[in-house]
C-alpha cells in the first residue's frame, strides 16, 4: 500500500547519496584524473574534464631517477621513510598508550582524572607557534635531520589521544573477566595481555589507524627538521611540486594517488574495526 512513497524514499536517498559523494569524492577524483593528463592539457582553457589522451607518464616519471629535477627526490625512498616513521611511531604509541590506558581504566591513583584531562588538553598545544621551540629542543637532543627524532616527536603528539581511546574502551570490558584470570594464578600483566587486550582489539586498531594517518601526512615539522634528501618524507615530496614557479598537477595527482593508496587499503581492510573502536572510544550511552 505504501509502494509509491517507498520508491520515492529510495530516490530521495539516492539523491542525497549522490550529493554527499560529489562533495566528498570529487576533489580526490579530480586529482586522480589530473594524474593522467599532460602539462599542456592541464593548463588549457576551457578545462577538459576527462584526460584527452590518458597517459601514465606522470607515474613513470615519479619512479624514474632522471625525473627528480636535481633534487634527487627518490619516491620509493620517500615512501619508505614515511612508512618507517608512521609504522614505528604507531608501534610506540600502541605499546605505551595501552600501558597507560590500562592504568587510567583499571587502577586507582591520586590525580588520575586530572592527569588524563591534562593529557587530552595537551593535544591543543600544537601549531605554528611550537615550530621553533620544538626545533630547538630536537637540535639540543641531536635529533634534527633524523627519522628517529620524528618518530619520537610524532609519538609524543599521538600518545594522549591513543591513551584516551584505549582507556575508554578498556573501561567497557568487564572487570570480572580479568579478575577470574587472576584467580587462576595469572599476574596482573599476564591477565591484561591474555584476557583484556584481545577484547580491546577494535580500540587498538582505531588508535593505530588514527595515529598512522596523522604521522603519514604531517608536513610542518618534517619540512623544517629534515635536511638531507634521503631522510625526506612523502609530504615534503608532494610540496616540492608546488614551488613558486611550477605547479605540475599531473605529478601532484600521481604522487597523491600513490600516497593515499596504502592508507585506503588499510582502511578498506580495517574499516569495520575502526568504526567499532571509535564507538568504544567516543560513544557512550
Amino acid at each position: 500500500m505504501n509502494e509509491q512513497p517507498r520508491t520515492l524514499n529510495w530516490i530521495m536517498l539516492g539523491l542525497i547519496g549522490l550529493v554527499i559523494s560529489i562533495y566528498v569524492l570529487f576533489p580526490v577524483f579530480w586529482l586522480f584524473l589530473a594524474s593522467f593528463k599532460t602539462q599542456p592539457e592541464l593548463a588549457q582553457l576551457p578545462i577538459s574534464f576527462w584526460p584527452e589522451a590518458p597517459t601514465l607518464e606522470a607515474y613513470k616519471a615519479l619512479f624514474s631517477p632522471t625525473h627528480q629535477k636535481g633534487q634527487l627526490l627518490d619516491w620509493p625512498q620517500l615512501i619508505g621513510n614515511s612508512f618507517f616513521i608512521a609504522v614505528s611511531s604507531t608501534i610506540i604509541v600502541l605499546i605505551f598508550g595501552t600501558l597507560a590506558g590500562y592504568a587510567f581504566a583499571r587502577l586507582n591513583f591520586p590525580g588520575r582524572d586530572l592527569i588524563l584531562g591534562g593529557l587530552l588538553i595537551s593535544r591543543m598545544f600544537q601549531g605554528a607557534a611550537l615550530l621553533l621551540p620544538t626545533y630547538r629542543l630536537m637540535s639540543m637532543l641531536g635529533l634534527q635531520d633524523s627519522l628517529i627524532g620524528l618518530v619520537l616527536l610524532y609519538s609524543a603528539f599521538g600518545l594522549p589521544f591513543a591513551t584516551w581511546i584505549i582507556a575508554s574502551s578498556l573501561r567497557e570490558i568487564p572487570r570480572e573477566l580479568e579478575e577470574s584470570a587472576m584467580m587462576d594464578g595469572a599476574s596482573r600483566l599476564q591477565s591484561m595481555v591474555m584476557v583484556v587486550l584481545p577484547l580491546a582489539t577494535p580500540a587498538l586498531i582505531t588508535a593505530a589507524m588514527w595515529h598512522f594517518v596523522g604521522a603519514w601526512s604531517e608536513f610542518a615539522f618534517a619540512s623544517i627538521l629534515l635536511e638531507s634528501n634521503e631522510h625526506k618524507t612523502v609530504t615534503i615530496g608532494l610540496a616540492s611540486f608546488v614551488e613558486l614557479f611550477t605547479l605540475e598537477f599531473q605529478y601532484v595527482g600521481a604522487a597523491a594517488t600513490i600516497v593515499a593508496l596504502p592508507i585506503m587499503l588499510i582502511f578498506l581492510f580495517g574499516q569495520r574495526y575502526f568504526t567499532r573502536g571509535l564507538l568504544a572510544g567516543a560513544v557512550k550511552g
Binding site: 597507560a100 592504568a103 595537551s122 620544538t134 603528539f157
Partner: peptide, 16 residues
Amino acid sequence: LILPVVAAVLAFVVGP
C-alpha cells in the same frame, strides 16, 4: 605505566 606517556608529553609538548 603512565610514566612514558606523561614524560613524552612533558618533554615534547609541554616543554616547547
